[in-house]
Structures are given as structure tokens and as C-alpha cells.
Design a binder for these strands. Sequence first.
RNA 1: GCGGCUGUAGCUCAGUUGGUUAGAGUGCUGGAUUGUGAUUCCAGAUGUCGUGGGUUCAAGUCCCAUCAGCCGCCCCA
Length: 419
Amino acid sequence: MSSSVKGMRDLLGDELRWFQRIEEAVHRVFGAHGYREIRTPILEYTEVFKRSVGDSSDIVNKEMYEFLDKGNRSVTMRPENTAGVVRAMVDHKLLVNNDPQLFYYMGPMFRYERMQAGRYRQFWQIGAESFGVASPESEAESLVMLFDFLQGLGLKSLSLSLNSVGTPESRPAFNAAFRAFFDARANHFCEDCHRRIETNPMRILDCKNPGCQAALEGHPTIVEFLDEASKAHHTRLKELLTALDIPFTENPRLVRGLDYYTRTAFEVLSSDLGAQSALLGGGRYDGLVKMLGGPDTAAFGWAIGLDRLAMVLKQLQGDAPFDPPALLIPLGEKASAEAIRLAREWWGKGLSIQLETRGCPLKKALQSANRTGVKLALILGEGELEKGTVAVKHLDTGEQEEWSLEETALNLGGKGTRS
RNA sequence: GCGGCUGUAGCUCAGUUGGUUAGAGUGCUGGAUUGUGAUUCCAGAUGUCGUGGGUUCAAGUCCCAUCAGCCGCCCCA
């Protein structure tokens, strides 16, 4: 019966309330860390993604919303936002003098995929990217921000899965060793892995096939073939995380699906997401800026699935807290004129007031109020008008009392509400 | 891209081996005298049976196609 485009949904009600709550925390926490927001276009030239995400990745191969515009240029609705942010850094020449540049973003991404629990064709991501700093300290800082953000939302037991995927320089050594390991037991690996050994051997490590996982027992790890600098980097990051009380587990088989990562790679999974267990992922991508035409710049970043985060929070905490405005119900012509004036005065003081403007009988007004979740009805009739009061009905308990106008402003004051 | 399940009132669903006018609960609308909801009582309305074909005297029920949703694979957020 749905008539929205497949995989794209309307956000409203409780789900939207969780989104808003998360977004508010993003601005507050990330802003406090000195990250600034960036909003890049939803549409980029297809080339931007092909060059950054990688031609061999599934995203580019089969998941992009890609089409020709009227000028016959190939454009793509962003499947992720790191590429767009890097493109913006390059365009605005923000990286020319090597100052650190810290940015965060939030917004819809698009991937043409088969739908499933926690997976949509239009989904939202929150991400943070830091440019111009190569140190493990910058990664620790970014991860602290991430964990403070998530813990602030009430997620306590998170497991960070950590690995180093090395550098383009260190990878040949690993690939050679891994190839020898693979060839010695090649018949135990699946068809896909035989393809991967030619295109991207690392990706065999996270093949989901149980047979392949078993065959990987005792495999050479990327970490043991790291160059000295990368090895020191990896060790230092682990020391920092330990000192900062950020729990992590080393996962030598963790490899990310995007081609641009170097050195640090990580993921956080959640058991509350069904098969779509990845809540967030990220890592270092020191080569990407140069690849997109900018100066050789170190970079580190990650992205969280907002839809999935909201889903986890709902599972853990139920409905998002909601404080609906009080409903002001005037009775009669005289009262309804006064109600608008009075509400305006209260709005000016920052109160949250919804006006019943239908001029309907009180019974009907209360029925609607009850249905729409109003908690407090302020009834303004002839009698109240003369006395300068309102009849205040608490819809959850049924109790009713009478407040002066001053009392009302005082009692409702400062309560921030949103739908 | 591949596989499994599902689609009947706003919502949750029932509907026999095909058989006459398609049902329940909830919700909705109106009423139980004036300015009091949610609870109670009375009355009422509700449907392209996802869509399009086919088989049949007869299809919500069987067949095919298609669309959508859920779940899984791949991959990811």
C-alpha cells in the first residue's frame, strides 16, 4: 500500500524524535571538540565516488544511484560522505597550509540495495573527519569524542573492534606472505576468495563463509608485516585507548569494504540490529586527499548509521522522551479572541502552547487532546475570563485545578518541547 | 544481484476441500440534556480482498506475472 519510493521512508513520530535527540547531541558534543559542521551536496559527479570509494567496491559496482543529468554528465547521489567532504576540502583549498581541519556532517546517503532490517536505500549518516594530522593522538581524540557521544546517549556496552590495514608500502609484504598461506590450502577457500586473492587479498580475511574462516586459522596477520612506523603507530594508539578507558578488542581479520583506508581501521557492532550488525565504521585514509587532487594530507574519520543508532536506542530505551505543549482551549467567541492574545504573550516568554482554534465544543477538544497525547489542557471559558484564571486539566490523572495567568506562565515556564 | 515468507477495514488479524450479500477485535462517527477526555452503555459507517492476467458455472481462496513489505545471503551504516 506504500507509495513512497522503495527503500525511502517518511520520518515522523517517535523515530523522528530519536533522530532529533541524536542530532542535538551531535551538534553539542562535536561542536565542543572543535569540529565544525559541513554540508556538502547530495549529488556529486560520479567520478568523485569512483575515484575515492574504489572501482572494485560493491558500492561503486552495484549500489550507486547514478544517472546522467540534462547536460549529459554522470552524477551520483552520495553513497557516503567522506568523498564529498574531501572534494570540498580540495575545492576550498582548506588543506594548503597544513592546519588541522576538523569537520562533522549529518545527512541522507543513498545506496541502491535490497531492503532488510535496518537497511534502507535512503539512510542517514553522521560522520566526523579530521584532516592534516597523522598522529595516533588525533585518532584517540576522535574516538574519545565518538565514545562520549554514544555514551551520552545511553549506550554503555559498546565493543570497539580494531585493526591496522597497513599502508600501500607495507601491503606487498603481507600480500606475499598471505598468498603463500592461501596457495597452501587454496582448495578450502570459496570462489569469491579465489577472485579476491587476485584483486584484494586482504578482503579474504572477512569472508563470511564459515569454511573460509576455518581455513584462515593461523593466517599471517597484517599487523606482523607492518613497516616500523605503522607498527609504532598502532601500538601507540592501543596504549592511548587503554589509558583513556576505551575498551577495544584487536581483530586481525577486520578489513573495511572501502578501498581508501590505511593503517587504523575499526568498527563498532551492535547485537540489537539483526543481520545488519554494523553500527559504525571508520579509519585512517591518508592517501585519499591526494587521490582527489589535493595536497598529500593525512586524514582520519568514521561514520555512524543514524537509522541504526536510533533503532538501538529505541530497543534499549523505548520511546524517545516527549513533552507535548499544553493545549489552550477557549470557549466562546470572546474567550477565543483573548486566547490568541494570551498565547502570544506566553509564546513570547518561551512557553510551549498549542491553541485549539476550531471553536468546537469542549468535549470534542478534549477528545482530540487525549488522542494526540496532550498532557495538560488549559480551559479558558467565560468564568475564567472574568476571574483572570484558567481551568487546568491533567489528562493523565483527570485532576483539575485553577491557576491564575501568572501561575500558569510560571508553572509552564522553561519547558522546552518539540514534536 | 540471489533465496524464503507475507499482502483482506485506519491498525492487528480470521476467512473451511473454491460456493450466494467478506467477518472479528480495536479504532472511527453520532448519541446517553447546557463547559469535561480517557472508562461504561446504545446506535452507525467503513473494503478496488496489493495490482494485472488466467483456470472455472463460480476465485479472498487455485495458477502465472507484477508491485510492495518482512527476513536472510552478498555488502555495508
